[in-house]
Structure formats: structure tokens, C-alpha cells
Design a protein around this nucleic acid. Structure first.
Length: 293
DNA sequence: GCACAGGTAGATT
DNA sequence: AATCTACCTGTG
């Protein structure tokens, strides 16, 4: 966890037109595994992305935000929370009427959203994620920021950019608790450092080609590619299949022994063009033990 | 001590 | 194309 340095934060500001959450769906959205740099304080969440430090809390089911003095975080916050996207409407387009498992998951997390995070940070976070628990991934991100990241207004540090990661040797990355992931990140950092604009071009590509390009990166397979597409590029058709979703599809949906490729087809056909949103509800419900997986 | 964790890549069958 | 296996390390 980041030490919460002595920062002067501005006053809490109500965001009256902001997204609606329940305590549970806010926690799940910010700290449920889409992003890895939120921490829970007594009665608020504190998160970091790009050069931002933002606090969020729920007061009578309305969102309030605060930021270091003199900073207006609202434009960045709107983008990060994809505030213009009507997730309730997208959720209603999912096949919950005919799918009791999905319906149960949706009812458990009303207000759940898909974040729109900076692309590079999303890639970095999920390159750290393989066979790690969320708390561990968060610890790795903190370690990377502490060792290599630029300072933020409150005295904490941002995640390092790819140029900085490319400069740092693989051994230095291993020191950040990365284990074998250090090699992947080192190689990906060098790949990206040699190709300025590569990530920007990726953002312009259609989802299929964008996925193919992500798969070129060392350490990026189908699951991580889909996480980057879903949480970094708002490609809601992307359906990451991790161990939770794999078990859930096998058990709750009665699809044991289906291959990942077959399950991808099932998800696309059954859940449709917003399959990634369904995945997030199901992932949340499975982890919470609401759906047996 | 040992299995397991939001996987991927390379080898083997 | 489906099935192993190594890869690091913290956690229970």
C-alpha cells in the first residue's frame, strides 16, 4: 500500500450528475481487479492513474470527489469512469432475462462499471498479473512506482512509463517482486521504447487487429490482451477468460471440458457485443461467492 | 512442507 | 489442435 503522504487535499465536492453506485459496486469497480492502484481508507477510496491522485466516496449513494489542492480532477474522472456511458442501458441489453446466473450477478452489483484506464498502465498492470492475487498485483505496482515512478503532487509516485521501464534492467524489475514477469515487462518495454506511437496506433485499430497486435508483446496472451482491450480501450466485446470465469462457465453454465476457444465462442454468441460487461458481473459474483464457481 | 494464485510460451504428443 | 511444463514468489 502506498503511504498516504501528507498532502493537502481540497474539499469534498459532490458530483451530483455522476455515476450511481452502491457501496458494493463502487468497491468492486475501483478495487475489484480492473485497476490496481486504489486503496481503501476509513470512509473513502484513494486512487492513482497517469499523474492523478483522486479520492472518491459515497455519501447517501451520491459520489463525492477530492483531489490535491488546486487540482480539478473532474475531467479526468469523467474519462476514467466512462461517465458518458450508460452502463445500466448496456446491462439491460445483456441476456439476463433468459440467464438466471447472469441475472443473479447483475442484481448483486447494481451500478458496476467498466473503467477506461490509460492504455499503457493497463498493459503494465496486467503484465504483472499472471498467477497473482489482486493484493499481490497491487503490491507489485506499488513497488514499481516507488522504485521507478515520477513523483505526484501529494508526494507519492505514479507508475513508471515504458521508457523508464526499458531503461531499468530486468534485475531491477525482479527486485520489485515481479519474478518471471520481469522478463516479459523488460522485453515489452524495450519493444515499445523502439516503437514510439505503437500504443497510440493500437488505440485506433479495430478490436480484432488491436488484439492481434497486443498478442505480439512478450508476456501478453489472450487473457491479458482482452483485459487491456476491456479495461484500457473500452472494447466491451472483449471477454477475458481467467480461472474464475473458466470455473464459472464450467460449473454454473454446465460447460465442463470446453476449451478456451470454445468458451470464447460461447461468450460471444450468448452474451453478445457487450460480453465484457457480463464477464465483469460474473467475475465479481464468482469472487464474492454469490455464484458457485 | 506444499498447493495455489486474474497466465504465457515453448515443447511434446 | 490438445495437453504438459517451466517460469518466480508470497501466502495459506
Amino acid at each position: 500500500m502506498p503511504p498516504s503522504p501528507s498532502a493537502d487535499f481540497g474539499p469534498w465536492t459532490p458530483w451530483t450528475t455522476g455515476p450511481r453506485f452502491t457501496p458494493r459496486s463502487l468497491a468492486e469497480t475501483l478495487d475489484g481487479g480492473q485497476a490496481f492502484r486504489w486503496r481503501r481508507a476509513a470512509d473513502f477510496f484513494e486512487g492513482r492513474w497517469d499523474d492523478r491522485v483522486v479520492r472518491l466516496r459515497l455519501l447517501k449513494d451520491r459520489l463525492e470527489y477530492a483531489a490535491p489542492t488546486g487540482v480539478d480532477p473532474l475531467p479526468a474522472l469523467r474519462s476514467y469512469l466512462a461517465a458518458e456511458v450508460d452502463f445500466a442501458a448496456l446491462t439491460d441489453e445483456l441476456p439476463w432475462r433468459s440467464d438466471p446466473v447472469l441475472r443473479c450477478a447483475i442484481e448483486a452489483f447494481p451500478g458496476l462499471r467498466l473503467l477506461r484506464q490509460p492504455l499503457g498502465e493497463t498493459l503494465l498492470g496486467f503484465l504483472c498479473s499472471s498467477t497473482k492475487q489482486i493484493v499481490q498485483i497491487k503490491a507489485i505496482c506499488e513497488s514499481l512506482a516507488a522504485d521507478l515512478g515520477p513523483a505526484l503532487p501529494d508526494g507519492s509516485r505514479a507508475l513508471p512509463g515504458w521508457e523508464r521501464l526499458a531503461e531499468a534492467g530486468e534485475d531491477r524489475l525482479r527486485a520489485a517482486k515481479l519474478g518471471y514477469r520481469a522478463r516479459h515487462i523488460h522485453q515489452t518495454a524495450r519493444f515499445l521504447a523502439e516503437r514510439p506511437g505503437w500504443l497510440d496506433e493500437l488505440a485506433e485499430a479495430e478490436t480484432g487487429p488491436a488484439r492481434e497486435r497486443l498478442l505480439q508483446l512478450p508476456g501478453v496472451g489472450r487473457k491479458i490482451a482482452d483485459c487491456v482491450l476491456l479495461f484500457g480501450l473500452a472494447r466491451y466485446e472483449a471477454f477475458p477468460i481467467d480461472t474464475w470465469v473458466l470455473k464459472l462457465l464450467a460449473q454454473a453454465y454446465g460447460l465442463p471440458a470446453w476449451s478456451p476457444a470454445q468458451l470464447q465462442d460461447f461468450a460471444r454468441i450468448h452474451f453478445g457485443p457487450r460480453a465484457g460487461l457480463a464477464q465483469q458481473y460474473l467475475f465479481a459474483a464468482a469472487r464474492a461467492g454469490i455464484i458457485r464457481a
